[in-house]
Design a protein around this nucleic acid. Structure first.
Length: 462
RNA sequence: GGCCCCGUAGUUCAACGGAUAGAAUGGAGGUUUCCUAAACCUUAGAUACAGGUUCGAUUCCUGUCGGGGCUACCA
């Protein structure tokens, strides 16, 4: 959602943005789920068990980690040190074996891998679609890791990398104040950074972009620092154009989210909950008059997802954020629905104006010579409208949806105050009525545009 | 141990080195025969601590305390 919004904002600033999704579809973590499926999941497939494919595989991952932890503990009891135990459980060895087979292209391993990945992608697709997020291109690291290995080879030839006795390959970064970093395991298989090096090279080759943006959590700050350094050492000047847009950890009231432990808030469940909360709110407030069932469903979705996105985007993403699924997402105050509501109010006002025979096309409204003093509230709105282009620019410079979100909120709040205090259609002076209608229309458009830069839709009625 | 990020009302967040530190939520009180009360108005409530730089510090520097992350032949 953050990446999507940033892409919208950059487009609004005139950039060509290619949205790519880097899918890490290979590696030890994938092998762990495959081992888990073979051991405990035989026969379960997404369609039959009724769970989405990505969720099913996620559960297998958790299963692997819990079982593996038990094995680790047993080994420690038998007198092994923690480090040894981590490497010597039968599960880990099995996963490692699986990874070797995968890299060797062993057919049955590849087959299982392809099958399980297809489940995951199907699940992801549904989730992205509901979030309103799409990509121009997908990079699969199962394709790009080979490019990474080539880069490592190049590094060895250039003397940037070195091989240790156990055949593993490393790059030394101590001169830059960092440690040495493993690039290839002793058995020749690649690790996360290896495939990321390859992906970066492929991205560059394909687009030759001015900037390569990565929207990735801040726990990977070190990873990207290393990535840039290695590319630089390999003589890739464009390494300087890699920008890691990091965002903070999401913490739950009882601790951090961890996919290994299954303590994550599932995006699908969350969206569903938001939808239901929006439905309840709408019903409780008795706002359903004149809605067909289909329209009502669309409204719940728009408001629910809007609340969720706004909640995430309104804060500076660099900070860690606390997320309490029960309480965090409100529909009142500084929220998405508040802004959506303001927009709906404006639209309602414009509909009423039309009914009262004010010209719907405000550009064609009768223009008389008129001069009148503006009220403070009117000036306030004008001032904010005037700031809009600058905010878009600033949000682009800082890659900050939060600036956009806060602006939209401020404008909505200012408008609501105006709406509450100042008569519009009840005003007697027709010139003033037209001015206020025009001001409302303009404010509505800017609110809609601002929200669209966050990837949030606004309803005509709510 | 080393490196990085963070610490602002009870809570969740704002504030390119600049005016009286803004909101929201929660608390207290109020507004609807009238354009949508998912709104509006009033009210109490905060810069972790100690130094330094500056005409001026929530912001920059140093230290202390507190929270988080990274430092894996995990991703």
């Amino acid at each position: 959602m953050i990446g999507w919004s940033i892409s919208r904002i950059l487009e609004a600033n005139g950039y060509d943005v290619e949205k790519v999704n880097l899918v890490n579809d290979r590696g030890i973590h994938i092998c762990k789920t495959m081992v888990a499926w073979q051991r405990w999941g035989q026969g379960t497939v997404p369609d039959v068990s009724g769970t989405k494919g990505d969720k099913l595989v996620g559960e297998l991952y958790v299963k692997f980690e819990t079982e593996n932890n038990e094995q680790v503990n047993r080994l420690i009891e038998k007198g092994m040190t923690g480090d040894e135990a981590l490497k010597n459980t039968s599960l880990i060895m099995e996963a490692n074996e699986m990874l070797r087979k995968w890299e060797a292209g062993e057919p049955s391993t590849r087959q299982l891998w392809a099958k399980m990945n297809a489940w995951v992608y199907k699940g992801f697709e549904l989730t992205y679609e509901r979030m309103g997020v799409s990509f121009d291109k997908m990079y699969y690291e199962s394709d790009t890791y080979k490019e990474g290995k080539k880069l490592v080879q190049e590094g060895l030839e250039k003397g940037v990398c070195y091989r240790k006795e156990d055949n593993s390959v490393w790059v030394g970064l101590t001169n830059e104040g960092l440690d040495e970093k493993l690039l290839l395991r002793g058995d020749g298989t690649s690790v996360y950074i290896t495939q990321d090096l390859g992906t970066a090279q492929l991205r560059y080759d394909e687009y030759h972009p001015d900037r390569l943006l990565y929207v990735v959590g801040n726990e990977q700050n070190y990873h990207f620092e290393v990535l840039k350094l290695i590319l630089k050492k390999l003589g890739r000047a464009w390494s300087d154009n890699i920008i890691h847009i990091n965002y903070g950890m999401v913490e739950l009231p009882h601790g951090r989210m961890k996919s290994r432990e299954g303590t994550v808030v599932d995006a699908d469940e969350l969206m569903e909950e938001m939808h239901r909360a929006a439905e309840k709110m709408t019903t409780d407030l008795g706002k359903l008059e004149g809605f067909r069932e289909q329209e009502a469903m669309e409204l719940y979705e728009m408001v629910g997802i809007g609340a969720l996105k706004y909640f995430i985007l309104k804060v500076d993403p660099k900070k860690n954020m606390l997320f309490n699924p029960e309480e965090s997402i409100d529909f009142n105050g500084n929220t998405g629905p508040f802004i959506q509501y303001t927009y709906a109010r404006v639209q309602s006002l414009l509909r009423k104006a039309k009914q009262k025979d004010f010209d719907a096309d405000l550009n064609k409204a009768p223009r008389k010579e008129a001069s009148f003093k503006l009220l403070d509230k009117e000036k306030g709105i004008l001032r904010l409208l005037h700031e809009f282009p600058g905010i878009v620019r600033e949000a682009g410079e800082h890659y900050s949806p939060a600036l956009m979100a806060n602006y939209a909120y401020e404008l909505a709040r200012e408008y609501n105050q105006f709406y509450q205090e100042v008569p519009i259609l009840r005003e007697e002076d027709e010139n003033r009525v037209y001015f206020r209608l025009g001001l409302s229309d303009f404010a509505g458009r800017i609110i809609k545009t601002s929200m669209s830069l966050l990837g949030i839709s606004v309803p005509d009625k709510m």
